[in-house]
Amino acid sequence: MTAPNQALRADAARNVDAILTAAAEVFGELGADAPLDEIPRRAGVGRATMHRRFPTREHLFAAILRSQVDTLVDAAEARTGAEDPWGALLEWIGAYEEIGAPYRGMSARLSAALLEQASPVGELCAPMRTAFDVLFRRAQDLARVRRDISSADVLAIISALPRDPETGRARTAHLTVVLDGLRRPAPESARSLTE
């Protein structure tokens, strides 16, 4: 026989799963500014049930994005010793581009959260920012990445780029301009210096 507390915990866990599934669907269909009332309706729970666990839209975003952020932390850590630091940086940024892609308007929210840091999404992203910073600094040291910009600035800029309506990713031309702008020019040759 199941104890009453166990049954309550199982019900609560099912409610959380239903809310997050519904939230991912709603934000995927209607974007990050979707009406929140649609989420408990689809989840089959009351509004109060959702708000007890997820008091704000930001709390829902953080819960939905958690596994992707954890994957990005692991991806950054796995690339810190790569022989090609620039290639490692580009690979990681490509993976980062996927985080908000399914939800229209989410990338702009990420951009703000990365700079604010005090919101639920900002707190969620703190380990990711730290792991990316290590990768970014290594690229600055070994791959001629400019030093007058921080890793957090790079993430915020990429997140704020206009999105392709089909894929949700930054438009290729815009992302290319940003990435090209990260590289310091190669040192002039000794010949050009003496001319």
Rank of each mutant, 00 (worst) to 15 (best):
P4H: 07
N5M: 13
A7E: 15
L8M: 15
D11P: 04
D11A: 14
A12E: 12
A13V: 02
N15P: 07
N15I: 08
I19P: 03
I19L: 09
A23W: 01
A23L: 04
V26E: 00
V26Y: 02
L30H: 12
G31K: 02
P35W: 07
P35I: 09
E38V: 09
E38K: 05
I39H: 03
I39S: 05
P40A: 05
R41I: 04
G44S: 00
T49G: 01
M50L: 15
H51P: 00
R52A: 10
R52T: 11
R53N: 10
R53T: 11
T56N: 06
E58P: 01
H59N: 13
L60E: 04
I64H: 05
R66A: 13
Q68A: 13
Q68F: 06
V69Y: 04
A75N: 10
E77G: 06
R79V: 05
R79L: 14
A82Y: 00
G87R: 15
A95C: 02
Y96K: 02
I99R: 03
G100Q: 02
G105S: 01
S107F: 10
L110K: 04
S111Y: 09
A112E: 11
A113E: 04
A113Q: 07
L115D: 07
E116L: 10
A118F: 08
A118Y: 11
A118R: 14
A118P: 02
S119T: 11
P120F: 09
V121N: 06
G122S: 09
L124H: 05
L124F: 04
P127E: 02
M128G: 07
M128E: 10
M128D: 01
R129V: 10
A131N: 04
D133F: 06
A139K: 01
Q140M: 01
Q140V: 06
R144Y: 13
R144S: 11
R144E: 08
V145H: 00
D148Y: 08
S150T: 11
S150I: 05
S150Q: 05
D153Q: 12
D153T: 12
P162N: 00
E166F: 08
E166W: 10
E166V: 14
G168K: 06
R169T: 11
R171V: 13
R171Q: 14
H174W: 14
H174M: 13
D180K: 14
L182P: 05
R183F: 08
R184E: 14
R184K: 15
R184Q: 15
R184H: 14
R184G: 11
A186D: 15
S189D: 12
S192Y: 15
L193K: 11
T194I: 15
E195A: 13
